[in-house]
Design a protein around this nucleic acid. Structure first.
Lengths: 160, 160
DNA sequence: GTCTCTGCAAAGGTTTTGCAGTAAC
DNA sequence: GTTACTGCAAAACCTTTGCAGAGAC
């Protein structure tokens, strides 16, 4: 048995846990952070910094663009959101807490979540990390796997 | 047996093969392309567009920076050089023809080549590609695996 | 001769920075 | 009360673009 896909939009952490995670890093649970985490976990979508900025604006949750950028990065470093590369050289974010990766279609911009297979009894990413650590003697971070491809829609359009 | 590391600085292709590869794409074997490929295959190092620009300049091979950028991309698309993400959000290039990946240390900027293991009788990248294609129904490109970590040197420095 | 390429400078787009006021703790 | 954070605008950054002249085929 290899795959274990599950993509529930379950809420990652409650406010208390979030606050605790932030506190441990000397970070505060400010309004922007509440608003951003709230949006991401409710919408369960993939957004860019600017997209998030605009979406929040429409909602009435006004944050400055630089605040959105700053906090998206801070929250990603704290492990509260996931960051990955979108279609136009822009970073995308989601707050899905389950281990997953993304496939991006450069033509349509569409993003699809994927769960990677297990290898040798462990998630592919961990397997890879340990392998590279043995191989190089370096202390390796969680591997980033970035996948691009053509969505069925793009192929149907006859785009080459 | 899984690994098969070998990092010979063997010259990828001779001038004739390069010209042929380019011709097939309607591309010309211009001086900038000769110079860039020559440098990369001789030095067998990882360089950024700007680094390459400066290195060539010192050598007396003057190319404009935009020409370097353009051709690095063109050559990467033609499969004549490999492109990957360096430490500062800049793209790095090498001309090593053998299937390999890179580990980058964000602190020192150091880059180390790695050969990824095989899984189920095929290179990890192919395995992953096929897996994701089955899983999503998308037509997936060659997966990009990007690895970061702390080089022994960085750890020795006591950098946290 | 044709068609791609070069070089220059200027623009592009995303992300970061500096600083004074504000708010979390 | 401290200390981190916000917001604004301006800047920084890598990379791309437009166009006239040059060079590969």
């Amino acid at each position: 048995m290899a795959t274990g896909e599950s993509r529930q939009p379950e809420r990652p952490w409650g406010p208390a846990e979030v606050r605790e995670v932030l506190r441990k890093r000397g970070l505060r649970y400010s309004r922007p952070r509440r608003v951003i985490l709230g949006y991401l976990s409710e919408q369960d979508r993939h957004v860019s910094a600017e997209g998030l900025y605009l979406a929040l604006r429409q909602r009435g949750d006004d944050l400055s663009l630089s605040t959105v950028y700053l906090n998206l990065r801070v929250l990603a470093e704290a492990g509260l959101v996931r960051e990955f590369d979108g279609a136009n050289g822009e970073a995308l974010y989601d707050s899905n807490p389950s281990e997953h990766y993304h496939v991006v279609c450069p033509e349509t911009g569409e993003v699809r979540d994927v769960t990677l297979p297990w290898v040798n009894g462990q998630p592919l990413a961990s397997f890879l990390k340990e392998y590279v650590e043995r191989e190089t003697g370096w202390e390796i971070d969680e591997p980033h796997v970035s996948l691009t491809g053509r969505a069925p829609a793009a192929r149907a359009d006859g785009v080459d």
